[in-house]
Simulated scan of single mutants.
Amino acid sequence: MTSGIHTLTEKEKETLRLLVDGHDAKSMARHLGLSVHTINERLRDARRKMAVSSSREAARQLREIEHRLPEKLADKALGEAEAVPGVEDRPTPAEAPRMVRPLGWLVGGLLMSLTLALFALSSMTGTSDTPAAAPSTAPAESAAVAAARDWLALVEKGDWNGSWEATGQSFKALNSVETWARVASQVQGPLGAVKSRVLMSEEAVPAPPYGYQMVKFRTDYANKAGTIETLSLVREGGSWRVVGVTVE
């Protein structure tokens, strides 16, 4: 697998990364200013070089190789992609993005590619290590922010099964619970306990197919102060679910 990836051109890698981010052939063509035919040729060449029958599998393998570094997960967010010619895998339903950059997590899909945001997190009440509730005069946090805090609380407790179950379809399609548990524990462990977590911003990102909510926290860990946690969430089944997160 590794040798096949080394033969890929940068343009082929770029196309595979967009596929992992949830784009279909048409949206990739629009994003890159190319024809759908050119996009399909890149995917076909990538499948041949990597000796796989599925473009989605080629994209998944590329993601694993590129993020097989210390304190990295995945730097992408996933969105629901329409079927791409030559991609035999059934398209994964999702409402948006997936997680890593150096010193960051990426656990879901579309984020990093479109907003450099590809692993959302704790309840409004948080844990004993979370900061005290905001004064009553402060505006109430949104449901997306609350869902992000809830998910972070599960991660802090090392509840890998629970945090994986709370992610979106696109995240689960590209990350097994075993992979998530292994990588998340490697990243979370060195940070230590949470001392404080403050909401920095919440933004609605109009990305295909349905957009997603980006939530940012500034968190002080016992071993790393001033950490920026960026989570992407999509609406699934009436609930906000995490599809991407970076920790920098």
Rank of each mutant, 00 (worst) to 15 (best):
T7Q: 14
E10K: 13
R17V: 05
L18R: 06
R30F: 02
H31D: 08
L32T: 04
S35K: 12
H37F: 12
I39T: 02
N40R: 11
R42H: 08
A51F: 10
S55C: 03
E57F: 02
L62T: 00
R63D: 12
R68E: 15
R68Q: 15
E71R: 15
D75N: 12
K76N: 08
G79K: 02
E82V: 01
P85Q: 07
G86L: 04
T92Q: 04
R98M: 12
M99E: 14
L103E: 10
L103C: 00
W105A: 09
L114R: 07
L114H: 11
L116G: 13
T127P: 10
T130Q: 12
A133Y: 02
A134C: 00
S136L: 11
T137E: 04
S142I: 00
V145M: 08
D150I: 09
L152Q: 08
L154M: 08
V155E: 11
V155C: 09
W160C: 00
N161H: 03
S163H: 00
S163W: 00
W164P: 01
T167W: 00
S170V: 13
Q186E: 10
Q186K: 11
A193Q: 12
A193K: 15
M200Q: 14
A204L: 10
P206Q: 11
Y212W: 14
V215N: 06
R218D: 10
K224L: 03
L233H: 05
E236I: 04
G238E: 07
R241E: 08
V242K: 09
G244K: 05
T246F: 06
